[in-house]
Amino acid sequence: MKAAVIVFPGSNCDRDVTVALRQSMHAGGGGEPTLVWHKEADFPAVDLIVLPGGFSYGDYLRSGAMAAHSPVMTEVARRASRGVPVLGICNGFQILTEAGLLPGALMRNAGLRYVCKDVHIRVESSQTVFTSKYETGQTLRIPIAHHDGNYSADDDGLARLEDGGQIAFRYCDNDGSHSSAANPNGSARNIAGIFNETKTVLGMMPHPERLADAQLGGTDGRPLFDGLIEALS
């Protein structure tokens, strides 16, 4: 199992997600994640590509807009088109939408404030390489930390996501119900994460790598990494 974590200027969760990946890799057959600088137009063959959270290019112009055109992203898009799984967390999700690898856009939070807290999200489908270690309908407690997480798409786009089973996670109450009170940022239909059509690209605003070790206060994020390593080893 080989994984690449792409590092942009301003990424700040690259090492956290590397620790989470390494933990699951060591538990599940070995391997070591590789950090890849965004200027690299090519990088070794891997089974998984991760775009980490952070503030690439200081969020200039729009969050993720500059990073989406970094040299490495041409290669990421090429591999994604061939089916290599790509996981984008927080700023990584923003980069994936700006690069056109996921539909829609992430706008300023409806409350205009940067929101940093634990939220509950519901797993909408366990039938993917990313979510196989969860149950459909399972509620997770995962931290969010973002200013631009307000998912937006037009009505047709939202209908396509629903019909295609492309909604990965939704913000919910701790009993799993999707109320507007549980929506921290105004996201359309409480969307916290989406897949591409083939479910090989996942973008999510919550940070599973921040709750992947009991010493960090919880382990609800760990099955995402364990499931990926199991499926891709």
Binding site: L61, A65, M66, M107, S152
Partner: peptide, 9 residues
């Protein structure tokens, strides 16, 4: 089209 605007929104 490429950078200055996000034509989705």
């Amino acid at each position: 089209e490429k950078l200055l605007a996000n034509t989705v929104i």
